[in-house]
């Protein structure tokens, strides 16, 4: 008979797999000539649509919707770029030195250079290499993504205990999953959690990149993306 305490924890990982959003497409405008403006416009539009998806996804994380609306907002405002970056990293795992921003938008170094995305490219690749080395699987990716949201270190949390409970349940889910799936490596959960500082560092660079794009004012940005950038 399996220990009853383990059942709900495994459930969290399977639930996170079920609520994982559908594939997303960049759909760059074919009538616009290639170059910096087109690449950045495509990425900003993609990010805006992905943010809507992320907000919907967050509501399906067990325990997230029980937080106050203010705390839900604070966590998302802190962690949204980490979640975007983590998704790019996971999509890029099957590729060689290419970043898969969307199913139809993979960028290699040469294309990144010619379209003004080299800084972003260079910032995200180390995280892809680290994830490849760890051979991160989908269950681990969805759990880490939820942990990144719960662990976003927002300065404006009203109910710290409730956020701590969310962190604990996701952390336990990861440990439980690793205990079952990777018993050969008792440090695997720790190794995965140790990627989070690099994720935060990478997301910070990405926010700075898009903030400077906003300040230059050459690329149209949708309202939600602007709102989230301003919250940073």
């Amino acid at each position: 008979i399996p220990p009853p305490a383990k059942k709900p924890l495994t459930k969290i990982v399977s639930h996170l797999l079920v609520v994982e959003p559908e594939k997303i497409y960049a759909m760059p405008d074919p009538s616009v000539p290639d170059g910096d403006i087109k690449a950045l416009t495509t990425l900003c539009d993609l990010a805006d649509r992905e943010l809507v998806v992320i907000i919907g996804w967050a509501k399906h994380i067990p325990g997230f919707s029980s937080l106050s609306l203010g705390d839900q907002m604070s966590l998302l405002q802190s962690a949204w770029m980490e979640i975007l970056v983590l998704s790019i990293v996971f999509r890029s795992l099957a590729c060689d030195e290419e970043l898969v921003y969307a199913e139809d938008y993979a960028v290699d170094e040469e294309r990144a250079r010619s379209s003004g995305l080299l800084d972003l490219h260079v910032a995200i690749l180390p995280l892809v290499r680290r994830f490849k080395k760890l051979r991160v699987d989908k269950e681990e990716f969805v759990t880490l993504k939820a942990i990144a949201l719960a662990n976003s270190d927002s300065m404006h949390i009203e109910n710290l205990e409730a956020v701590q409970r969310l962190q604990d349940s996701l952390h336990e889910a990861l440990q439980d999953f690793e205990g079952c799936q990777h018993p050969e490596d008792p440090r695997r959960a720790g190794k995965l959690l140790m990627t989070l500082p690099l994720l935060r560092q990478t997301a910070t660079k990405a926010v700075q990149h898009f903030y400077s794009v906003k300040m230059q004012g050459k690329v149209p940005m949708h309202k939600l993306f602007l709102e989230m950038l301003e919250a940073k």
Binding site: I55, M73, A231
Partner: peptide
């Protein structure tokens, strides 16, 4: 919340809380 209107609205769109 006024400043972050879209996020606020999207979070308020009803979905029943998930409690496993």
């Amino acid at each position: 919340k006024e400043k972050h209107k879209i996020l606020h609205q999207l979070l308020q769109n009803s979905t029943s809380p998930v409690d496993l």
